[in-house]
Design a protein around this nucleic acid. Structure first.
Lengths: 234, 234
DNA sequence: AAGTGGTCTAGACCACTGC
DNA sequence: CAGTGGTCTAGACCACTTT
């Protein structure tokens, strides 16, 4: 086993620390030497060790606390970075041509379940959009979206039968945070018809709500056509 | 809108750069000032700007290339960090008690589709395990796993009716990389029965294959009971 | 060849937190 | 209070990429 990564670099040190954890030199829960000691051992600056350790902490391999030191994580959970691209680009990346069709546009109050979750008044004006994204001639995903009209200037002036909401919002409604949930749902009759799938088919579904500070921006459910896989590397 | 983050820190600079992108001060595709110039503007060291910029690059807000400089990303894709915990802990985090039952243990060759994907000989000795994880008395997920016997010392000596494979492998078979795919699958008759779900129910499914260098370690499919949601914050 | 980001250094001070 | 990680600095050299 040669080490293709040069030592003394933060990558080299990261690799060596990873090895020590994997090989059980440092056992789960165990306290590892502090940065100053490791810097001396590796003959490098403390900042270099810090950089390597920070990566290990970000991926959950170690837990770090001031004064308490650094410990090998007891329950290393796999941490995965998912890239959720703009839908058009995802379709095009598959070599298909993308197009898009607006199915529904409606102004009015949202379901109570939604306004409650967003912390909005029940009668807050919302824009409800539903659209289909196609890969070539095939339905790719169904987008069901509610947008907080008060939070997005210019929203009502935009023609979403031409402009697609997914990309328009990225450009025009920045957000500071939000949450995402993935699940599997059985296609109801209407959704099945739209996606040209069998009723009850298993659909990969993504629910995303975004906020700008305290202000809710939009809540969307993306239902992918059957067979969709979201893929990434570790 | 006060700025609770002090300027001059990398977080403060990160926030200010983010603001400039969000507010359109720097448009998508546009070249932003180089690190030295920004360091001068903010009155800080270049390393501090570098740290802020690195975060922006990691989350896909900007694209950086040596010599070419830093540009605001044209197609910002949402980058999401998913935490996939050890199953037992995930169940316990819901306040349920976890238990586990081995359904199948079989040594022998794997299906051709699998060996081919792993780059193993068709007759490579593999261990096939199937198990169910429970939250209290309710089936939580079904685990269908193949393990490369040659790559995992001590594998055949382990009693997986007592020890659960998920955690045993974490401790005993480190990996350097792999891939993960999420999808939605309809429950077949057997799986539906095991999960006490209706046949055809939509199941959230995770396929994960891990490698240690060039050596395939294990390939597993986790099928969660209906209703499961994988959740994270942005 | 030259410009840009990537990294490293040696030192310093600060912030948090367990004791 | 004292030990540890978190961050910042000023400077340097390097690696990559475009010109």
């Amino acid at each position: 086993m040669t080490s293709p990564t040069p030592a003394r670099t933060w990558r080299g040190i990261h690799a060596e620390l990873t090895r020590r954890i994997n090989d059980g030199v440092w056992r789960p829960g165990e306290l590892v030497p502090n940065e100053a000691e490791l810097a001396e051992e590796f003959g490098c600056a403390r900042a270099t060790v810090n950089r390597a350790m920070r990566e290990l902490a970000e991926t959950g391999r170690v837990d770090r606390k001031r004064k308490a030191g650094t410990r090998v994580a007891l329950h290393p959970s796999a941490r995965v970075v998912l890239d959720i691209p703009v839908i058009r680009r995802e379709v095009e990346a598959r070599g298909a041509s993308w197009h898009y069709s607006l199915i529904l546009r409606e102004e009015g109050p949202a379901p109570l379940a939604l306004t409650a979750r967003l912390g909005l008044a029940q009668d807050a004006p919302m824009l409800h959009l539903a659209c289909l994204h196609y890969a070539d001639a095939q339905p790719f995903l169904h987008e069901d979206r509610w947008i907080n009209i008060a939070a997005v200037p210019g929203l009502l002036d935009t023609d979403f039968s031409v402009e697609n909401a997914n990309e328009w919002l990225i450009r025009n409604a920045p957000y500071t945070g939000g949450d995402i949930a993935f699940s599997a749902l059985a296609a109801g009759a209407e959704l099945a018809a739209l996606l040209e799938a069998a009723e009850g088919a298993a659909l990969f579904t993504l629910d995303r709500t975004t906020w700008n500070g305290e202000v809710p921006i939009t809540s969307v459910r993306l239902s992918y056509a059957p067979g969709y896989r979201m893929h990434t590397r570790i």
